[in-house]
């Protein structure tokens, strides 16, 4: 890999990238109106955490691979969560005939 050996990529760079992604995902969760959009932003947050974990695993404990194991199980959990979340969204759509978060406010006082 000679073409990337000229760049100085320390650990902080990967952590900063993961923080950027987390911030963008958080902005998406807080400001979107469509339910599936919120789920997309939650997936973005999860991927930020994945980059963080794998960066730590590569730089701090390369032999024990702790971060990569955590990342594998996190991918499994994210798949389950998206499946169940989309089933919930489908049920909500069938009940209320809308996927606009502002219109789903029965419990709001």
């Amino acid at each position: 890999m000679q073409f990337i050996s000229g760049l100085e990529l320390k650990l902080v760079y990967f952590l900063a990238v993961s923080a950027i992604l987390f911030g963008i995902g958080l902005y998406g969760v807080l400001t979107r109106r469509h339910l599936v959009h919120i789920l997309l932003s939650v997936e973005l947050i999860l991927n930020a955490v994945l980059i963080n974990l794998v960066a730590f695993s590569a730089f701090v404990t390369p032999e024990k691979l702790t971060g990569q194991m955590f990342a594998v199980f996190l991918i499994v959990v994210a798949a389950c969560e998206v499946g169940v979340g989309l089933a919930i969204i489908l049920s909500v759509y069938r009940r209320r005939k809308t996927v606009d978060v502002d219109n789903i406010n029965i419990l709001k006082w």
């Binding site: 990337i4 320390k10 650990l11 900063a16 923080a19 987390f22 911030g23 590569a58 730089f59 390369p62």
Partner: peptide, 22 residues
């Protein structure tokens, strides 16, 4: 949140095995 996280990561003393990604 991004500013706080980046400050924490920048000032933390993490003993890394390798310094560069290569």
């Amino acid at each position: 949140l991004f500013v706080c996280l980046t400050l924490v990561f920048y000032n933390a003393k993490i003993d890394t095995v390798a310094d560069n990604v290569s």
